[in-house]
């Protein structure tokens, strides 16, 4: 049944006003802020790309920005590799057991519910050098040399943050890949088996291409998530990414610039940083989706 335009407009109006005022309008102004000069909260002249230049020429950005960006990229790449391989592995193992699949999927998804901030504080307590259960356990089983200050050492801090994050989110790829595997008709594998294909061939040649849309979805969402990571690193290393900036991320840098720096042009530079981040996230997600769609079409004909 069709609705008249006037009636439909009335139904849509509340959502439109809410979304427009609190999401779209701030989002658009966020960009505009980046192109002006700022003295505290008063806006000065239009300065073009000057604020963006500052991000690449002025301290602390010359050191902090490349470092944070590198951490975000490492975080994304490591997460995507681990999540896809572990997630796909677990989902495949679960696929062959109808009776316990549901219970196990549910258990794996529990950490997803927990706030990233809680997860960060929890693991920093679990991994605390002196009183942490993890190091106590390592000492008890004779791995004294492994009882390291995991989050206090710049060399181990970032890898540990990555592992914590994977631990938290693994339930998501497990669920998605489980659903995708369930959607592949059993006849496909059956036919291949009759033709003499080995299990590894069936996985690589039949299941993997059919899983590509799900892998694409997980990858794109992981990208957005990894570029925005804030609460977990904040809980683990504070707003400065301790120890020594080893867990600094772009969103922390943005937060520091906007709210902690006290610089007179904080609004301008932090908005430029936000705009840059937005372009990377949105552009990256769009490009990835586009590439994946093409791959899918090519593989599936």
């Amino acid at each position: 049944m069709r609705m008249r335009l006037g009636t439909a407009a009335l139904f849509v109006l509340p959502a439109l006003v809410l979304f427009g005022v609190f999401i779209l309008y701030p989002m658009v102004t966020a960009f505009s802020y980046a192109f002006f000069d700022w003295q505290g909260t008063s806006r000065g002249a239009f300065v073009g790309f000057k604020q963006f230049e500052a991000l690449f020429t002025k301290p602390p950005f010359t050191t902090d920005l490349p470092r944070a960006l590198l951490h975000n990229i490492v975080f994304f790449l490591a997460t995507i590799v681990l999540q896809n391989s572990i997630g796909l592995g677990i989902a495949s193992l679960l696929h062959s057991r109808a009776s316990t699949r549901r219970a196990l999927q549910t258990l794996f998804a529990v950490p997803y519910l927990v706030s990233p901030l809680v997860v960060g504080y929890l693991w920093s307590l679990l991994l605390s050098p002196a009183f942490g259960p993890v190091n106590t356990l390592l000492r008890k089983v004779g791995l004294e040399s492994w009882a390291l200050p995991w989050l206090g050492d710049p060399t181990t801090a970032l890898p540990v943050v990555i592992l914590i994050s994977v631990w938290q989110w693994i339930g998501f790829p497990v669920l998605l890949y489980g659903a995708a595997l369930g959607g592949i008709p059993e006849e496909f594998s059956e036919a291949a088996r009759v033709d003499g294909a080995r299990p590894s061939q069936i996985f690589r040649r039949i299941k993997l291409p059919l899983l590509l849309p799900a892998i694409g979805t997980v990858s794109v969402l992981t990208f957005i998530f990894a570029m925005e990571a804030f609460a977990l690193p904040y809980a683990v290393g504070g707003s400065t990414g301790n120890p020594g900036g080893a867990t600094d991320f772009l969103s922390l840098l943005f937060y520091r610039t906007a709210f902690d720096s006290g610089a007179t042009d904080a609004i301008g530079t932090s908005s430029a940083l936000a705009t840059l981040l937005f372009v990377v996230i949105f552009g990256g997600a769009l490009t990835a989706t586009w590439v994946l769609r093409r791959q899918e079409r090519r593989l599936l004909g």
């Binding site: 979304f19 999401i23 802020y33 943005f254 906007a258």
Partner: peptide, 16 residues
């Protein structure tokens, strides 16, 4: 809006 990183707009939201 599904893919919009709205946390990046925190500054304009603050001033709004």
């Amino acid at each position: 809006g599904l893919m919009l990183p709205i946390h990046l707009a925190v500054l304009p939201i603050f001033y709004l």
